[in-house]
Design a protein around this nucleic acid. Structure first.
Lengths: 366, 366
DNA sequence: TGGGATCTTGAATCCGCTT
DNA sequence: TAAGCGGATTCAAGATCCC
């Protein structure tokens, strides 16, 4: 590691200039959350006529695609220089910018390893009903040089995904509530990312002690994840307000004493756990199917596309719904039954879980 | 509709040439599933050493991004020419090609309306555990001209999504089992799309009788959805094997007698506008009658002979008066109530409008 | 203090016909 | 063509209020 690498600090200024001042091939991972080039023409109002507080920051104003492209090429090239040959890069964006970014990234000889979709559990609806709800953002994960060795902690990802391979669709809520940084009740940054997103990214693609750089540091979510996971970080940001907020925030963050960072090998106990939704993924059950609360009970519930159960107005996990209906702590796996057309009988859904678990044991790659 | 438009048939040959022979601005919707530019360097084997039957067709081989870009620009431009000004275009792809396609599409002045992610319930795992399971593909939905009116059947989408807005994340299984076309047990087309995907696309963004064109028709999934939904279709394909399979397949498809197509809720935006004065013309209400601002409110207004409402010095449309009295954006149809002497209750005046609208529908429906 | 009702808000390219 | 205006349009969570 070069001695002149400014570790664990925020560099104040323009990222393209500051990146040029850093030593080449010195960084293991880059996470970038660049301006999205949103182009809302007019104000937007909800059906109750209240005004939506849209992104309208000066740093997100570009006059044309070509201006945005030039900006994108500049910061991506600067990032490429400081990245180690075996390093990788993440970029997040929406449909407004991600196709520009993706194409330029490929033109600069980055090699895409995955695209990942962050699916929001609570996106803002489309108030006018004129398009589909914009419920996801896209992450690109690319390596600097095609064919180079890169870090991917497969077992760590498995262990935080109920021992299934982590897929390219990630379900995470927006950054709201206590996690969202505010000043006098006003959100500090219009697009603060959830900590869980950065935590997963760093846990997946870095090793302890690695250097993680974020050229659009904002309020420092990347730094927080790095500290918690025992990685070094470098943040670049030019807005003094964000820098101050990030410094204050990061002064209170400490490495996790347990969790992913200290248990990078999967815990054998966790191998038994399997989310109900997996039965849908495997096609054993389908959204819309009916489950019964017991072998003879008339009480029914419908499976939702999200892998929950719905009865009347009640929606929740198999365990929660079973508990509420029976007014006691319940185990959904043994309480809910499905109808098997082949033998005309009801069986507990736990039977399906056992089938998947046993098939995974034999498929296991260890 | 141009008389020389070859409806409901497959055109045999190269799509760029054949598109040039079609009349300009004649097609309502284009769905394109272009070659993905997949380039597995070596054969891919599962953990049990069996060989994965990857896409390796000759039509999916490009030697460079620039060659793929030129091809993409050519077919997208040709599509743009035949599309009506208010027409829209869908393209599906994976991370190998969708960023090229998206950027070129924007460069050609298509205007992106949404990107949609098709999330596969049963994707192929990443056998070696070196990346995230590639569990989704990306769809781009764009209009030919920014700001033009386009078709989006919001109410239809709502009704097939439990009365919630349809989001940009779609959960559909891969095309497998009986749906997958096979010849002697071998899959006929390496990337046959599920019928449910095309069905949703056409149900969302076309109207009955519209012309849907697919420049990479393959085995005709787009044609099947079009027939089932009562839309015209044009398929372009150059592989004789696929053409033969599509012809055979489509000869057995018939319009749905039920399902989405017949349960399409009328989009309120698209129905005929009916002025408040019509209620007076029909004799449902009379000048001088009293309306009430809610089921219990004491606030009253008088109907003027001009079909306006008057309260104190205030005179205006049902909407304007309701908005001013309540100090918010209001819909007069649902806010104003009339007194029905037959049941001694107040009802929204929208009830009267519905009666007229339904009587008009039964008159015009043959 | 508990729970139900109401209010607030989040990276959003967000109306369309008539005059 | 730009302005006017009729009238259609929202989901999930967390925070706050109220009884």
């Amino acid at each position: 590691m070069p001695a002149d690498l400014p570790l664990d600090q925020i560099l104040e200024g323009d990222c393209i200039e500051l990146l040029a001042s850093l030593p080449a091939e010195s960084v293991d991972l880059i996470f970038a959350d660049p301006p999205y080039n949103l182009q809302l023409q007019n104000e937007l109002r909800r059906p109750d006529n209240s005004l939506v507080d849209a992104v309208n920051a000066h740093w997100d104003r570009f006059t044309s695609f070509s201006e945005y492209d030039a900006f994108t090429r500049a910061w991506l090239s600067a990032c490429r220089r400081v990245l180690k040959p075996e390093g990788t890069l993440w970029v997040i964006g929406s449909y407004h910018n991600i196709y520009r970014v993706g194409a330029i990234l490929q033109d600069l000889d980055f090699w895409i390893l995955n695209d990942v979709v962050w699916i929001k559990s609570n996106p803002m609806p489309n108030f006018r009903g004129v398009r589909f709800t914009n419920a996801h953002e896209t992450l690109l994960w690319a390596q600097k040089e095609r064919g180079a060795r890169y870090t991917f902690n497969h077992q760590t990802m498995r262990s935080i995904n109920d021992d299934l391979q982590m897929r390219s669709d990630w379900y995470l809520p927006l950054c709201v509530g206590r996690e969202r940084l505010r000043s006098n009740g006003v959100k500090l940054h219009p697009t603060q990312k959830p900590a869980a997103l950065l935590y997963r990214i760093l846990a997946a693609s870095t090793r302890p002690g690695d250097v993680v750089l974020d050229p659009f540091f904002g309020t420092g979510t990347t730094g927080e994840a790095a500290i918690r996971l025992g990685r070094h970080w470098i943040g670049i940001e030019k807005e003094p307000v964000y820098i101050e907020a990030a410094r204050k925030r990061l002064s209170c963050v400490h490495p996790d004493s347990d969790g992913i960072s200290s248990s990078e090998k999967p815990d054998l106990r966790q191998r038994i756990r399997l989310p109900f939704g997996t039965l849908l993924e495997y096609g054993y059950l389908h959204p819309g199917d009916i489950l019964y609360l017991g072998p003879d009970s008339a009480i029914q519930a419908v499976i939702t596309p999200q892998g929950k159960l719905a009865v009347d107005g009640l929606i929740g996990s198999i365990h929660k719904v079973a508990s509420q209906l029976q007014d006691r702590q319940a185990n959904g796996w043994t309480d809910w039954y499905y109808y098997d057309a082949s033998d005309h009988q009801r069986h507990p859904i736990d039977k399906l879980r056992q089938q998947i678990l046993s098939s995974q044991e034999t498929e296991s790659d260890e």
